[in-house]
Design a protein around this nucleic acid. Sequence first.
DNA 1: TCTTGTCGTATTGTTGAACGATCCCCACAC
DNA 2: GTGTGGGGATCGTTCAACAATACGACAAGA
Lengths: 231, 231
Amino acid sequence: MRAGRLGERLAGLVQPQRSAAELAAASLREAIMLGELLPGERVAEEDLLRPLGISRNTLREAFRLLAHEKLLEHQFNRGVFVRTVDANDVEDLFRVRRLIEVPALANSTTEDWSTMTEAVQTGLTAATRGEWTEVGTANIRFHQAIVAAAGSRRLDELMCQLTAELRLAFHGMGDPRTFHESYLHRNNEIATLTANGDLARATTLLTTYLDDAEREMTTAFRAAGRGCPQA
Amino acid sequence: MRAGRLGERLAGLVQPQRSAAELAAASLREAIMLGELLPGERVAEEDLLRPLGISRNTLREAFRLLAHEKLLEHQFNRGVFVRTVDANDVEDLFRVRRLIEVPALANSTTEDWSTMTEAVQTGLTAATRGEWTEVGTANIRFHQAIVAAAGSRRLDELMCQLTAELRLAFHGMGDPRTFHESYLHRNNEIATLTANGDLARATTLLTTYLDDAEREMTTAFRAAGRGCPQA
DNA sequence: TCTTGTCGTATTGTTGAACGATCCCCACAC
DNA sequence: GTGTGGGGATCGTTCAACAATACGACAAGA
């Protein structure tokens, strides 16, 4: 019995052994997120075998992992490409966000909003230092905290994937400052309202936030001629 | 331009070329859904190379595909196992369903409820013939139609995965008749209410439906001693 | 009896090379 | 300009091999 309790206590500590493919996928994920690999760019197998130091099969495995995360796009017999997010995707992403985040916040039973308020604070301090990518990640963490209030593992996973796509979409936007800056204080408002238990006003604010953010992104995309593939 | 329009017209018809791994995954998916591979059962690579007639790498690729669908569970250096769904999973699944289906139905803008009513009808006729697995799939299609009302590709994908897990959970239930039969007329009620535009009553009915179904499943699981792994 | 250490075996993880299949590009004929 | 091959590059798949790991059995010690 003692071993059982010990194992239970350590269950959260042990990190599962990661395969070579997962490690390679982590490298590629980083490269995509940092913009070293641009959307639409072709990612040839041959070019990555050396830099990553893995075999072709393992690399293909890594490709598959990232394709599942919608960071890469796999075309049969043609290879993999960095995913391009168009205006339609942005529209769909925000449609899902509205449908997930708002009810998650409205029906939340949690009392612990520490991660949410922390995300807001790191965002604010990062803004004063002008670290706008940091502001972006803080913003994402804020919204992940909202979804986390639902207390569902699967929903957290979904949100994780959505935010990865959103990050990809950010690359299509212009100046990150003008984009992120305007939402900083709105996040703060939402966070304080939720912490005070005023979920009704918090959810309405969240809704308008999502509407505005979507409008800004889709107009920016359409202006940049990235409306939709066959338009 | 002509090619573009033609491609657009045929876009729905052409089925993308499927790799050997995807075909193998389809076979395995079928076997899991039909219960030929039982939850928790180990699925050794060696045992499937011959029957599927593919190489080891391709088989491992198929494993990964199914692992991503949460039908298989991959344990490093130990192999893959048919996924076991416990009471905690059921709880989480229904938590997500509540948060997705109810708002999807409440905020639906669709006027076309044909797929939903069709699903209900096929369920009813299948019940008269005693084809209970068919009733189960019709039930699933009904709820997928609810989510489809949100009009989001990503949400449809999520729902598809959730239902796959639910199907897996059904294996843990006893008599499919007593389980599915009671929900047939409730689906019908919800469908008629939505078709008549009374979304308010439809959503309340859907909520109680989900509550009851969850209670029934979790109690059945706990009674069968499949509460949760380390309890 | 229970725990711990050791070892052999089976299975998985990863590699590298090979071959057929498919796509893309380009020269060529009409 | 349009259609038709061909060649090269890349991908899909297979195969064989070796390394790394887990599992079961068995023995030694408390």
